[in-house]
């Protein structure tokens, strides 16, 4: 290497030891090319062909390998998203089917029970029980509570509404005298669960997304007052003031609550003729 730098001079350059990049670029072309005598043998053509075959093969292998590997993740993600959408559509369709079949069954039952006095009494009992179990639609005046995640602020983790917040609020509404509650279209029955899966809240196994709208039937004046006094109301106020969670409540007229799901038939026997 020294002769490269001291060409024309009697001694090595003072910065000869700092020649790393210089060396790299100077020897970028293998010096063996310059010194090799072109051996023009008869088989030169074939040798060149074979010798260039291997790098081509290697390049092709590497490209194929990279093409196979890189989009796999994107493909899987796309497949998962598609599968989720398909399942959601199927679940919606099955839910609609279930609701229609339930309506059919109720109609058939009403018709059958109307034939006798005992039947009509049983039908009245069933209607009352369904109303109490939130298995029939309900309308009336009440309050509408809106709860939403805090607005995202840069540099801070966003304060989100958790399932226990909704649970506390629903329990607080019951305690304040509500006679029927729905959350984002899902009626709350005595066995309805409000859970969290991943980052979304599930009400009765249906995912709901913010803003969460809770409609409660009851006294539009008494419920807000009682709720504000209760533990649940104080907790929601703390969340609103401390974390920026949106928590609004106002009275509303003519609320329509859908029927709850459930009412699974567990015991049945054929009627004695």
């Amino acid at each position: 290497m020294d002769d490269l730098h001291s060409a024309g001079m009697g001694r090595a350059r003072p910065d000869a030891s700092m020649s790393l990049l210089d060396d790299i670029t100077a020897t970028a072309l293998d010096p063996a090319y310059a010194t090799a005598k072109g051996t023009r043998t008869r088989h030169t053509g074939l040798a060149t062909f074979v010798v260039l075959l291997v790098p081509g093969l290697l390049l092709a292998i590497a490209v194929v390998h990279a093409q196979r590997g890189a989009p796999a993740l994107a493909r899987q993600h796309g497949q998962l998203v598609r599968a989720i959408h398909d399942r959601e559509h199927t679940a919606d369709r099955l839910r609609r089917q279930t609701a229609a079949l339930r309506a059919d069954v109720a109609g058939l039952r009403r018709e059958r029970l109307a034939h006798s006095r005992r039947g009509r009494a049983a039908e009245r009992d069933l209607t009352t029980a369904a109303r109490g179990a939130a298995l029939s639609a309900a309308t009336g005046d009440g309050v509408r509570v809106t709860v939403d995640d805090a607005p995202a602020r840069s540099g801070q983790p966003q304060a989100r509404v958790y399932d226990r917040d909704l649970q506390t609020l629903v329990n607080g509404l019951w305690a304040a005298g509500a006679t029927g509650i729905e959350v984002n279209g899902q009626r709350i029955t005595s066995t309805t669960a409000i859970r969290e899966a991943g980052s979304s809240i599930l009400v009765d196994f249906c995912p709901v997304s913010p803003p969460y709208r809770l409609d409660a039937l009851g006294d539009p004046d008494a419920i807000p007052a009682r709720l504000a006094d209760s533990t649940a109301g104080r907790r929601m106020n703390t969340l609103a003031n401390g974390f920026g969670i949106r928590y609004d409540m106002h009275s509303a007229d003519d609320l329509r609550l859908p029927a709850g799901s459930g009412g699974t038939l567990r015991y049945a026997r054929t009627a004695a003729r």
Partner: peptide, 27 residues
Amino acid sequence: MIAVIGLAAGVVLGLILHPDVPLWLQP
């Protein structure tokens, strides 16, 4: 020219044959 042909032939061969790279060699 023969060199270019050889290179191209190698690439085509690799694309046709689709050899699998053994796992220990992949890194």
